[in-house]
């Protein structure tokens, strides 16, 4: 007998945990849950069993739009020739440098 019933399938969610206050949320993994509240609780039990976080975000996986490998060139390469966006591009007097 195989389980062909789909009425008992819970959708997939992505979990983001914040390791410490002040830090950004990071992707921790995914899980299945029937709704938001259970997703949040399951995330707590699955990805924060060892005090890994102070805050949790959950979002149903289908709501995430991701860039594709084909986007890699047009999305990210152009930034390579814009050194003026990076602080190393600018020179600062020695005395100031030491203090920062």
């Amino acid at each position: 007998m195989s389980d062909t019933n789909n009425k008992d399938n819970w959708p997939l969610w992505e979990v983001f945990t914040q390791p410490k206050s002040g830090k950004p949320h990071e992707h921790a993994g995914s899980l299945h849950a029937a709704d938001e509240e259970m997703a949040l609780q399951n995330a707590r039990d699955t990805y924060a069993r060892r005090n890994e976080g102070v805050s949790i975000w959950v979002v149903e996986s289908k709501h995430i739009t991701a860039s594709t490998p084909e986007d890699m060139g047009p999305f990210f390469d152009p930034a390579n020739d814009k050194p003026y966006r990076h602080p190393q591009f600018y020179s600062v007097p020695r005395a100031v440098k030491k203090r920062s």
């Binding site: 819970w10 899980l31 299945h32 849950a33 259970m38 609780q41 399951n42 039990d45 699955t46 069993r49």
Partner: peptide, 11 residues
């Protein structure tokens, strides 16, 4: 009844 709930009850 479900892996996620197994973790929850054990907790």
């Amino acid at each position: 009844p479900q892996l996620e709930e197994d973790l929850a009850i054990a907790n």
